[in-house]
């Protein structure tokens, strides 16, 4: 009889959400950006995305087989990692770049640290950071002109923008008619995906809003060389990879803070670091390292941003007084 009585700790009500359903939502949210990439950059873009996604799944499967762990390919997290990595790469990279990047992301950044849920940085960004360090030339110059799909020479619009030059019309930036990595060019496609995730409750608005807000404000203040408060915040946000990073990478559950306030801090921190790298660093864009650095800071943020207990007073002084009095404070 005793084993009929089931004693478990809360929570007792379970939502229908699983890892798989959440990851599926993220994949769905990435569809507009992927489609935009293929429309603008053609079959090469498709090749890069397919190579990164397939090799991410394959790497996960092979690694888990090799170390005799349960195969978790079915939870789709490897698909998300691979797809995200592919979207951060330029369209004309040789295909071994996404393949090696995905394998590194899955094996070194994720599985070695225990798999999904215990990785300390976003795997897709770790993979991108690795290929960026391994083949810097490919990852920062293999651009294609949108629609015509011929090899582009010269700087990206972000580069021109930082130099204080014009950087394309806002319409082009919104639909994605510009040079750039696969997933970062079309702002509308990213916003569509982001809106879907927000609507489904998969991500918290705080990180993207704080991230892009901080970045926009910073670009407004420092964006124009030689003059303060004359930058163009809108182009500052639309150019480069900030949109993609803010909605899809910085919001990764495993590597972002759990508290609402902590998430705001993470967004602000990522915005500041992006700004620092863009305007005062050597690299053309700083989104990758900004988010990776904030991933590393996440445990610290979680440690110091402790939410107020339910039923306790805002006011620390009042709480102390209540404690001294030995009474309860309602």
């Amino acid at each position: 009889m005793a084993d009929k009585l089931l004693i478990t700790s809360s929570p007792h009500i379970r939502a229908a959400k699983t890892v798989r359903s959440i990851m599926l939502d993220v994949v769905i949210a990435l569809v507009p950006a992927s489609v935009a990439a293929v429309v603008f950059f053609g079959v090469k873009a498709f090749g890069v995305l397919a190579a990164s996604t397939i090799s991410a799944v394959l790497a996960e499967y092979l690694y888990e087989k090799a170390v005799k762990r349960p195969v978790t390919v079915g939870d789709l997290s490897a698909v998300v990692t691979g797809l995200l990595l592919g979207l951060t790469l330029p369209p004309a990279v040789p295909l071994y770049v996404p393949v090696v990047g995905s394998a590194f992301a899955i094996v070194v950044a994720k599985q070695v640290f225990g798999g999904l849920g215990t990785n300390f940085v976003n795997p897709a960004l770790a993979g991108r950071a690795f290929v960026l360090a391994a083949w810097p030339l490919h990852v920062t110059s293999a651009w294609l002109n949108p629609l015509t799909m011929d090899a582009a020479t010269g700087a990206t619009p972000l580069h021109a923008f930082k130099g204080g030059q014009a950087a394309g019309s806002l319409v082009d930036l919104l639909i994605g008619n510009r040079l750039g990595s696969l997933g970062e060019t079309s702002a509308i496609a990213i916003l569509l995906g982001g809106a879907y995730l927000l609507m489904r409750g998969v991500i918290d608005y705080r990180i993207p809003v704080a991230y892009l807000g901080t970045l926009g404000l910073g670009v407004f203040i420092f964006g124009k060389p030689g003059a303060l408060f004359q930058g163009d915040p809108l182009r500052g946000i639309l150019l480069g990879g900030a949109m993609l990073g803010a909605f899809f990478m910085a919001t990764d559950y495993v590597t972002s803070p759990v508290t609402p306030k902590g998430r705001t801090y993470m967004g602000i921190g990522a915005g500041l670091i992006t700004l620092l790298i863009r305007y005062w660093g050597d690299y053309p864009e700083g989104v990758t390292y900004a988010i990776l650095l904030m991933n590393l800071a996440t445990p610290l943020i979680d440690k110091f941003v402790v939410p107020r207990y339910y039923g306790y007073a805002h006011d620390v002084a009042a709480r102390r007084k209540a404690n001294r009095a030995g009474g309860e404070l309602s």
Partner: peptide, 23 residues
């Protein structure tokens, strides 16, 4: 036979190689 990966000659490459080989 392939495009060399410059990262492997830098300190991060050393750490990665050491870690992977050790495992």
């Amino acid at each position: 036979l392939f495009e060399p990966m410059s990262v492997m000659l830098t300190p991060p490459g050393g750490f990665i190689t050491l870690g992977v080989l050790m495992a």
